[in-house]
């Protein structure tokens, strides 16, 4: 992999040059939190942000998206609006890049989702390294570092950003800046290692995921699920803010006085009562406890069977977005806890 460095004071120059590759989007502040947004000026970008309210998922799988327009006689005509828009996401954290890599696998496979894939192709990602706060457990989820899925990835090494070039497009961006980037030398490599070491020590939250699938199986009947079911509001907040929740609903609507209309998909959540409801009226997950169990089970156990790792990346968003303080880290800790058999 090509590794270069960019002097920090040249970052805004770099930003102005890469705009030729697409519309520049970066985290900006919104009432003390951060959101990915189109930049109107570079100075609005907040690269030291903790986490955005919504993950970059919103660019690849928008909350609402028209899939088809229907016209009698024409049938279903795919909607291509917005798919070819070139965007550069500047300042994506490793966990969020990791999450996009997970979504890549879901939306690929035997049946490729052409909407997702078109956006993925046209949206460039410039990653940036970060330091953990009290909600981050990406390291436990092995998502504190990514080796692919980005075009460029920047590590803050003091006076420089060390840049990993991930794709040909990333290389084109580097080249377009003329000679802004410089080769790295041994001192900067040491800077990187020092930062990596410091980052590792900065994690305050740790979850053990080894053999977690088996423990989920063993605790399938645990009373934890009933307690969580009592608490959960089924508000869907955790699913909306999750960088790897991809469930969607599809709805058709018609125009007034016509059979013409459009087919839209929109974000959905397995916590909603209708999620597993079938036409005959049977609901396979009618209780809130069965639904929240399914959510944890699918992320931490089901996904492991399917893709070899949990789909959780440890970004901490669901923890801060839950109005009733349901905390995945605490749930896993409790599932792992050795209870005194006698007191059961």
């Amino acid at each position: 992999m090509k590794i270069l460095k960019l002097p920090k004071e040249k970052l805004d120059l770099f930003a102005s040059v890469v705009q030729q590759f697409g519309e520049l989007h970066a985290p900006v502040e919104q009432d003390g939190r951060y959101v990915f947004k189109r930049l109107t000026r570079w100075s609005d970008a907040r690269l030291e942000y903790d986490r955005t309210i919504l993950p970059p998922k919103k660019y690849f799988l928008p909350p609402r998206e028209a899939l088809f327009r229907y016209r009698p006689g024409e049938g279903f005509v795919p909607n291509t609006d917005g798919l070819d828009q070139r965007i550069i996401l500047f300042g994506v954290h490793a966990c969020d890049v990791y999450a996009i890599n997970i979504l890549d696998r879901v939306f690929a496979g035997k049946y490729k989702d052409p909407y997702y894939q078109a956006r993925r192709k046209n949206i460039a990602i410039i990653g940036i390294d970060c330091l953990p706060d009290k909600q981050c457990f990406c390291r436990s989820m092995r998502a504190d570092f990514v080796d692919h899925g980005f075009d460029l990835f920047f590590y803050d090494t003091g006076d420089y950003y060390q840049a990993l070039v991930g794709t040909a497009l990333g290389d084109d961006m580097v080249l377009a800046t003329g000679n802004l980037f410089e080769p790295v030398d041994a001192a900067e490599i040491d800077d990187y290692k020092r930062r990596s070491w410091n980052k590792r020590r900065a994690f305050q939250v740790d979850v053990e995921i080894r053999d977690l699938p088996e423990i989920f199986e063993m605790e399938y009947q645990s009373e934890i699920w009933d307690e969580l079911g009592e608490k959960c509001l089924s508000c869907g907040s955790c699913s909306m803010v999750c960088p790897t929740c991809y469930c969607y609903d599809v709805a058709d609507d018609v125009e007034l006085g016509s059979r013409a209309g459009k087919r839209t998909r929109l974000w959905d959540s397995c916590l909603f009562a209708s999620h597993a409801l079938v036409g005959s009226g049977e609901n396979f997950r009618g209780s809130r406890s069965s639904r929240i169990k399914y959510r944890f089970y699918h992320k931490q156990r089901g996904f492991v069977a399917e893709y070899g790792r949990p789909s959780c990346v440890g970004c901490g968003r669901c923890v801060s977005a839950c109005p009733v303080h349901i905390d995945v880290v605490q749930v896993i800790d409790r599932l792992r806890r050795v209870e005194d058999v006698a007191s059961r």
Binding site: R33, I53, L54, L233, S234, G236, S237, M240, W267, S274
Partner: peptide, 16 residues
Amino acid sequence: PEYPVCTECRMRENNC
């Protein structure tokens, strides 16, 4: 929709 206001509020990326 049968889902609550939070769902759409999150989709709009509002501060909670």
